[in-house]
Amino acid sequence: MMITHYLHKIASPAAFYLFCGRCLPWLIALFFIVLALGLYGGLVTAPADYQQGDAFRIIYVHVPAAWMSLFIYLVMAINAAVALIWRIKISEVIVVSSAYIGASFTFLALVTGSLWGKPMWGTWWTWDARLTSELVLLFLYFSIIALYNAYEDKRVASKAISILALVGVINIPIIHYSVVWWNTLHQGATVTKLDKPSIHIDMLIPLLEMAFAFNLYYLISLMQRARNEILKREFNSLWVKKLCQESSNE
């Protein structure tokens, strides 16, 4: 009972706006600390790979970006379902606010993968199942953004993109299992397989740090966009009016 009460409270746009505003400075500080740790670990302390030498260091941006591209989509799809069933405003805002940063991470996964593929595999791009399905994900993010901007009424727009996000969610297991279901040039999973990860511990720790840093960045970007979106949607409400008066009095 307590929890639902709390959730209802935080799910009100005004409370969410203030809550994010309080969290953001701390999250940004933490992001830079974790990022510095991850970069130092990945570029300096991690040993070179036995096969790939230093080229494998691209893993520290490529893999976290690829994980984020999938994770953000899942967050979007879950919020899309919540938005459609319960009509919770915050969920609508999270769906659209995640799309931009999700598209950015997907783009990064593709570009850094290409920069890794050229020296190691011998090609910038190939149409194997993993690469193709990740490209489809990028287009999904793009269509969600385009569809949202095509509607004048943002609540109708949210409904439309929620449905599209749920239609596209099938692509997520396809991306993840593509390397298992089909022959691909891309290798199999390293960290997320069920037995122990097949990466040396000194190489794994910076990878997890970078993944944590990228997660923090997602949270930061999401909160910033969500705050902006809330202000735009609630522009005529009393609390926004108060907020404006307060800031103009300063």
């Binding site: 030498g53 230093d54 260091r57 941006v61 490529h62 990064l108 920069l115 020296p119």
Partner: peptide, 20 residues
């Protein structure tokens, strides 16, 4: 130089932070 892979590595990191 990153063992000859400097171009690929620094471009990958550069693009990443540029996008963010």
């Amino acid at each position: 130089t990153m063992g000859g892979y400097g171009f690929y590595i620094w471009t990958a990191y550069g693009v990443s932070f540029l996008v963010l």
